[in-house]
Amino acid sequence: MMAGAKKEIPLREGLFTSGIPNDGSPQLVGTRCRSCGEVTFPKRKICPNCHKQDPEEISLSRYGKIYSVTVVTQRPPIYYKGPVPYAMGFVELPEGVRIQTLFTGCDPDSLGIGMDVELVVEKLCEDQEGHEIITYKFRPVDV
């Protein structure tokens, strides 16, 4: 946590936990359908596969493999304030869910399908008051 008046603000409530209540490591929050077992991220109120309501909230694995990845070399319109080029894609977790994510902590061009990655929560950008907006990303394991 930064000193002083600067706060860390999650990009969106309910996407991830920043290290509570487990061992201090962040976790993504998903849902698993109590009826068909489909796992989704972000969490949902209704299972998109079988439409049953009230799926159970679960913490998702912190480790997965890259399912698809691209490197964007041109700044997207309006919202994104991070570095360009940036790596973006999907990570498949052992629960059987694919998470769309930014990648961090490496040369974007070094990433490829099948690589082992782990979850981190870090700064995405700053808001107008200088507070840090934090979000989930994945980075290669053992960097």
């Binding site: 964007v72 041109q74 997207p76 309006i78 919202y79 994104y80 973006m88 995405l124 907006i133 979000t135």
Partner: peptide, 8 residues
């Protein structure tokens, strides 16, 4: 998702 740069 737009803040995450997915909107490309």
């Amino acid at each position: 998702e737009r803040y995450m740069g997915f909107n490309v």
